[in-house]
């Protein structure tokens, strides 16, 4: 795997206007066994700051802030904290806390929401 190429492709997909890019990143990036690729994908999706992209990173178990790798999860949380407009992210976090079936996901969302509230 050429890391530079993969990084550039993921970055290009993150900046792409087409909604299909979110789907590609979700399918290929977030399911990749390599931590570095998942980390890059999390960054790209969160930077998009759209409902669909943020939902993948916040709601799904084992992806984004709920990733099994602490490094990937922390990277996703950092990207969320770095967002200029946090409105959409906070809304999704609130919905996750109230409506998600998994308690683990709810707890993570609660912690991240608290962090975002403190940082803003």
């Amino acid at each position: 795997m050429n890391t530079r190429k993969v990084k550039n492709i993921i970055e290009a997909l993150g900046k792409h206007k087409d909604d299909e890019s979110i789907q590609i990143l979700n399918e290929l990036g977030t399911n990749c066994p390599i931590d570095e690729v998942r980390e890059l994908t999390s960054k790209a999706l969160i930077k998009k700051n759209t409902h669909n992209a943020l939902e993948i990173m916040i709601v799904n178990k084992g992806k984004g802030i709920n990733d099994l790798s602490a490094r990937v999860a922390m990277c996703a949380i950092n990207e969320l904290l770095a967002l200029k407009d946090k409105t959409e992210a906070l809304k999704i976090l609130e919905d996750t806390i109230n409506l998600h079936s998994e308690k683990e996901v709810q707890d993570t969302a609660r912690s991240v929401k608290a962090l975002m509230s403190f940082s803003s």
């Binding site: 795997m1 190429k5 993969v6 492709i9 997909l13 290929l28």
Partner: peptide
């Protein structure tokens, strides 16, 4: 296009 990017990423991974 996203299709091309998908192919390229899949090939790399």
């Amino acid at each position: 296009s996203t299709g091309e990017l998908r192919t390229m990423l899949a090939n790399e991974l």
